[in-house]
């Protein structure tokens, strides 16, 4: 009799223990997730930025962190269109820097109007792999069998590339149906420009449409695409309305367009924002 009571007891305790374990495990997971999400002792800025900015913004944020004690910057790089979609779905960020003003316009309702600033511009080039067939000129891109990689048309780098291919087809010196031939040579559409670069670097693709800044440190050969309108490819930054660190985020954008910030951008192969700035005055005013 007493034996049975004891059994029930241990079972009871075991049951409770398991439940407590499960609940506490859940609690720990949730707490950890929340903590990493928004731990606000010091200000942690979360910046969503176009993947072509990966190297330069990593450097910029290091400099900015060094100059502003207690500020931590968490960079999140991906294709601008994906970042836009994520923000639209409620992802939490303090600032968004897009490689295409369209993605800023598309989620304008989430952004602080007055903060919208052009931070840099860029140009497209055709990166060539070391191996593979010899491509001497842009016309060679239309040769049969050339393997071209490009970003998805919905990604800024892809949209610019498609527009340039169409432009070239209209120009003198390019064969008829140049654009169809080039588009026919596309073997893969990558989700961001860095993935395009990777395929060229790996030697699997013969050529890829990337930004001039992308090939800066790769040692890859490239073809310059002439007659690009300066400022057509503009990186535009903005603050998120829901950000809880408006001042710090504004200071970060301000730093990007400041002389020091622009110098870093230019050193990475970007072109300056100055002449094309939509709203530079506002951002400049907030420069620390």
């Amino acid at each position: 009799m007493s034996c049975r009571i004891v059994t029930i007891h241990t079972r009871h305790i075991r049951y409770l223990l398991i439940m407590m374990l499960a609940v506490s495990a859940l609690a720990v997971i949730t707490a950890a997730a929340c903590a990493s999400d928004r731990s606000e002792g010091a200000a942690t800025l979360r910046v969503f930025a176009a993947s072509s900015l990966t190297d330069v913004l990593t450097e910029v944020s290091e400099v900015f962190e060094a100059e502003n004690e207690g500020v931590q910057i968490e960079m999140h790089f991906a294709g601008s269109s994906r970042l836009r979609a994520q923000l639209d779905e409620g992802a939490v960020a303090d600032a968004f820097i897009s490689a295409d003003p369209r993605h800023i316009d598309a989620i304008a309702h989430l952004l602080v109007d007055s903060s919208i600033t052009t931070v840099a511009t860029n140009e497209m080039v055709v990166a060539l792999s070391d191996s593979g067939r010899p491509i001497q000129s842009l016309e060679d891109l239309a040769k049969p069998g050339v393997k071209i990689v490009i970003a998805l048309q919905d990604v800024p780098a892809g949209r610019y590339a498609h527009a340039l291919i169409a432009d070239m087809a209209q120009q003198q010196g390019f064969p008829a149906e140049f654009d169809d031939a080039v588009l026919g040579n596309i073997v893969s559409e990558e989700t961001n420009v860095r993935a395009v670069l990777a395929k060229v670097q790996l030697g699997e693709a013969d050529a890829g449409f990337v930004y001039q800044s992308d090939i800066r440190d790769t040692g890859l050969h490239s073809l310059i695409i002439p007659d690009q309108n300066p400022g057509d490819i503009a990186y535009v930054g903005a603050l998120l309305r829901d950000s809880s660190h408006h001042d710090t985020a504004q200071a970060f954008l301000g730093f990007l367009v400041s002389e020091a910030g622009q110098r870093i951008l230019i050193s990475h192969g970007f072109l300056s924002a100055e002449a094309f700035s939509i709203n530079a005055g506002v951002a400049m005013a907030a420069t620390p």
Partner: peptide
């Protein structure tokens, strides 16, 4: 797949790749 085969509709774009590609434009 995206690493080894790339992403091209009709040739190498399987459902998961199509989903990620669609995410770029239209959720």
């Amino acid at each position: 797949t995206i690493m080894f085969a790339g992403n091209l509709s009709g040739r190498t774009q399987t459902m998961p790749l199509a989903i990620l590609s669609a995410m770029e434009s239209d959720v």
